[in-house]
Design a binder for these strands. Structure first.
Lengths: 214, 214
DNA sequence: CGTGTCCTCCCCCGGCGGGGTGGGGGTCCG
DNA sequence: CGGACCCCCACCCCGCCGGGGGAGGACACG
């Protein structure tokens, strides 16, 4: 039996979810809360496995409530369920430790399935969120690839210098770090600039940064 | 009826998948292919809605096959189905245009569900992949937040200058772009450096870059 | 063995970047 | 009104950056 806590400031929404979930096999709604503060006390009182969490609520919002819940010992898994899927919301929710992010247009059986999945330890995201995460990842992977391809034209030593530049280091620093004269560093930098068709060391730093060179 | 093409170099795997999928409602396996080259010709011949694509195959691998398929007019949706979930594979597959990435430990009913979801236009990822994407996003969101917090100390004008620096632009460029004297730009840059505790404009660029300022 | 590439380094120099000083203007607030 | 910010600008100084020219040694490849 998966113990679920419902958190939403709208009593009607809670009632609907409660009815829908209690009808499902293996799921029991053990408590409800109308805001983040109540969610925390209710969690302490009823020890749910899963918390279905709304975001826009009075007193304590869903994000901070999630963060506080996840900071506890034996924390419940939190599934955010909201209408607003801004990047802000998604990032903050995931950062706060949510295991799932669902939009309120999710169909009842899918919500049930999401709860069982999360209870089994899997993460769950609404398709639209998944798509955005994929696009975001692909986009930065694109920059990564391009940067990598560009840096491939560099010799090993130039590569090291480029990396040092991407740390924001000055030529003198790089010289001591790599054990060579400042003149040599400058020669490498010039070579890098011409090879990559850039003007500044700043641009080198940005490119190398995109290539994933910490 | 969702038309499916199976692509895998192992005949046994194809047979198993075919049997399992044909038993499902609404799904018809219309063709099979043993490598990427066959996958392309089979796609042209049978116009499937969904291609279940393995990665490690002779002649043409699954990634390039996916890329070529997606480059066609009216391309099928591609679901990658593989045992190896390296970051390399996942990123390349998504970049090649795959709508889904499943591991071969996925249960038959879940594969069926994944196919119907993708046919409906939704993306689909194995839980482990989703988790990795989430972690990756959260990690870079951390740098994002820190950078944002730091940049919050800047005045609006300084913010603009920082953004320009993150483009790799020179002071003179910034002066003309923002319609002010070079002296003013330098004043802003100095102010930014002291406020953020940095030494170089390069470091400003890196910080602003982390903050998502394109 | 010659050629090429890479790494190393020198000197010179123009220009940009960063710091300091000093000053003008505006708004907003106590 | 006097401060407190913020924005704007000019002048000077100096150090770092970037470009040019020149040059030597190591190593590999044909």
């Amino acid at each position: 039996m998966i113990r679920v806590l419902l958190v939403d400031d709208d009593a009607l929404v809670r009632a609907g979810l409660s009815m829908m979930l209690d009808g499902a096999a293996g799921i029991a709604v053990v408590a409800e809360a109308a805001d983040g503060q109540e969610a925390i006390t209710a969690t302490d009182a009823h020890a749910p496995d899963i918390v279905l969490m709304d975001l826009r609520m009075p007193r304590v919002d869903g994000i901070t409530a999630t963060r506080r819940l996840r900071a506890r010992s034996r924390p419940p898994e939190v599934i955010v369920l909201t209408t607003f899927d801004t990047d802000e919301n998604v990032l903050h929710a995931l950062r706060a430790g949510a295991a799932g992010f669902l939009l309120k247009d999710t169909s009842p059986p899918q919500i049930v399935e999401a709860i069982t999945r999360v209870a089994a330890g899997d993460p769950i995201l609404s398709p639209r969120i998944t798509r955005r995460l994929m696009e975001r990842t692909v986009a930065q992977a694109g920059a990564y690839e391009r940067a990598r391809a560009a840096l491939a034209a560099l010799t090993p030593r130039e590569h090291e210098v480029a990396l040092a530049i991407a740390q924001g280091r000055t030529n003198a620093d790089i010289a001591t770090d790599l054990a060579m004269g400042v003149t040599t560093v400058k020669a490498h930098v010039s070579s890098i600039l011409t090879k990559l068709g850039l003007d500044n060391r700043t641009q080198i730093a940005l490119l190398a940064h995109d290539a994933g060179l910490t």
